[in-house]
Amino acid sequence: MANARLIRAGGRTVGLLVRVSSGRFRFFSSTPAVDALDNRVFRSLAATVRAVRDLSPTALRS
């Protein structure tokens, strides 16, 4: 994986995932729908995507 990756949900970009160390990635929210995850550290891209999807689906619409 590259050092940074855009995270998309509901057809739009919701944040940026940046590698901060080996096996650690920090999420930066770009929409209020996922602000609860802002600055959180994840172990993988998949874990980040799961966390975004776990938010209310209606929160990702608008």
Score class of each variant (00 low, 15 high):
25 F>T: 00
31 T>V: 15
45 L>F: 11
48 T>Y: 02
59 A>M: 10
39 N>C: 06
55 L>E: 11
9 A>C: 14
19 R>L: 12
13 T>R: 13
3 N>I: 08
30 S>I: 08
29 S>G: 12
27 F>P: 03
49 V>I: 10
41 V>S: 06
60 L>H: 12
34 V>H: 08
17 L>C: 06
54 D>P: 00
49 V>E: 07
5 R>V: 11
33 A>P: 05
6 L>N: 11
42 F>N: 00
58 T>H: 15
14 V>M: 12
18 V>Y: 01
47 A>S: 05
20 V>Y: 03
57 P>S: 14
55 L>T: 12
50 R>F: 00
15 G>H: 08
44 S>F: 02
1 M>E: 06
32 P>I: 06
20 V>H: 04
30 S>F: 07
49 V>A: 05
7 I>T: 05
46 A>N: 04
23 G>M: 07
14 V>S: 08
49 V>F: 00
6 L>D: 14
11 G>V: 00
52 V>W: 05
11 G>R: 03
59 A>F: 10
6 L>R: 09
46 A>Y: 00
58 T>W: 14
21 S>A: 15
28 F>T: 09
43 R>N: 10
46 A>P: 00
2 A>Y: 07
27 F>Y: 12
59 A>T: 11
26 R>I: 01
35 D>Y: 02
7 I>H: 09
8 R>M: 13
7 I>A: 04
45 L>S: 01
6 L>Y: 11
52 V>K: 03
51 A>S: 13
37 L>D: 03
32 P>N: 08
39 N>P: 01
51 A>V: 05
16 L>P: 11
24 R>C: 09
9 A>N: 13
51 A>W: 03
26 R>Q: 10
41 V>W: 02
43 R>K: 07
13 T>Q: 15
13 T>K: 10
9 A>P: 08
47 A>K: 02
47 A>Y: 00
32 P>Y: 05
31 T>L: 15
13 T>E: 14
47 A>T: 00
15 G>E: 11
60 L>P: 07
41 V>P: 01
1 M>N: 06
55 L>H: 10
61 R>Y: 13
2 A>T: 08
26 R>F: 00
7 I>Q: 07
47 A>N: 01
34 V>M: 11
34 V>Y: 09
29 S>R: 09
61 R>H: 13
48 T>H: 00
20 V>C: 13
33 A>F: 06
6 L>F: 10
25 F>L: 13
37 L>N: 04
52 V>A: 10
8 R>A: 12
14 V>Y: 09
50 R>V: 03
50 R>I: 02
35 D>I: 04
49 V>C: 01
30 S>A: 14
44 S>L: 03
10 G>W: 09
56 S>Y: 12
41 V>Y: 03
